[in-house]
Design a protein around this nucleic acid. Structure first.
Lengths: 203, 203
DNA sequence: ACCTGAACACCGTTCAAGT
DNA sequence: ACCTGAACACCGTTCAAGT
């Protein structure tokens, strides 16, 4: 969204986005752009001017949830208990340690799973689809969650070659594959816990 | 495909399917039905008569691979080494034991992952999409692979509440989420190994 | 019984004409 | 600078007319 816009342009942008949020929530990622234009009372060409691709629209619709997930990641990265301004110097081992790192990461991934399942269109917006634009949902989310993953690796709670992109893609895959289940939340939860536990023997 | 068909009907069915295989291989699960009809030299209504839904067409296109995966599952279920006709009585513990159960299951899941990534349309055909028809791809595949999962559970190599549907859905999700990566096979492999290892500490 | 061709409603894209 | 309306090519669906 450009800085200085004509008033009517900004108004249209807002209306389209509001309608799109409802429509995507109701119809999912395949919601009709034409229908959105009609309901917003603009031409479909105007929708296209503001959102050149379907993905761009889905990303805009998902922005609030992405921001919330980013905030949550930063919160968890600092350690849930202590306020941000009393952090230890970098050379002191984090008090949370291995279990804390792992728990924080798992909590965030659990939140991501819940969001990806319940917020229609979010999984599609996050799914990899060609080289990632700088300010895309994926890029923003990965940047925010990266510290969580790095700390887990440093503390030995996660294999060294696992990236934040791997984990997000895995969760997105679970969300996509469970989308049409009778109870998507329950099934996504099952699969997420399965992936966390692994397929190795339990002993 | 009905038993007794008029010759031209059967011929059309075959041609449509052959064209669909090429088109889906080239364009993926979203291939244009209209285009398939044109190339096959029939009306789009004829395509629709033989394959009432897109899913039905994708399932028909995927049939060979599904059969191969079923055969592989049965092969692995009997224990790779011994021929089928010297199997022990049921009350004797399988010689393969816990590790064998787990290895057989993992090998099959690895094959399923490879197929789901490389055979375009297969993941879409397997993805859950409402109540499963009796002879659907999913049903057939689940039935064939179920013994592998049950044996792994019995031998303690897998948590008791994990079902064959869970595992297939997880793999399908990985395939869907990695579809547009530069190297889908490599990324799907990464995620599959991650899910197998789990996110728990390694020690 | 099965197929064809046409008609229909819809969609996304593009662009000339407006203000 | 931005929007609208129309034109376009495409798609999937349905059905009357053929053989």
């Amino acid at each position: 969204m450009p800085e200085h816009q004509r008033a009517d342009a900004r108004r249209n942008y807002t209306r389209i986005l509001a309608v799109a949020e409802e429509e995507v929530a109701a119809q999912g990622a395949d919601a009709s752009l034409e229908q959105i234009a009609r309901t917003a009372g603009v031409g479909s060409a105007t929708v296209r001017r503001h959102f050149p691709t379907r993905r761009a629209l889905l990303e805009a619709v998902s922005k609030n949830r992405i921001d919330a997930l980013c905030a949550r990641a930063r919160e968890l990265a600092e350690g849930a208990q202590e306020p941000a301004d009393v952090r230890k110097p970098a050379d002191v081992q984090e008090p949370a340690g291995k279990d804390g790192s792992r728990d924080a990461l798992l909590e965030w991934l659990t939140d991501l799973t819940a969001y990806s399942v319940s917020a229609r269109g979010l999984a599609a917006a996050l799914a990899y689809d060609g080289p990632v634009h700088e300010n895309s949902c994926s890029a923003v989310l990965e940047k925010a969650a990266d510290p969580l993953v790095r700390r887990a690796v440093q503390d030995g709670a996660l294999a060294a070659d696992v990236t934040v992109a791997d984990l997000i893609t895995l969760v997105v895959g679970i969300a996509l594959a469970t989308e049409h289940y009778p109870d998507p939340t329950a099934q996504a939860d099952r699969l997420f816990r399965l992936a966390v536990a692994g397929l190795s023997p339990r002993s």
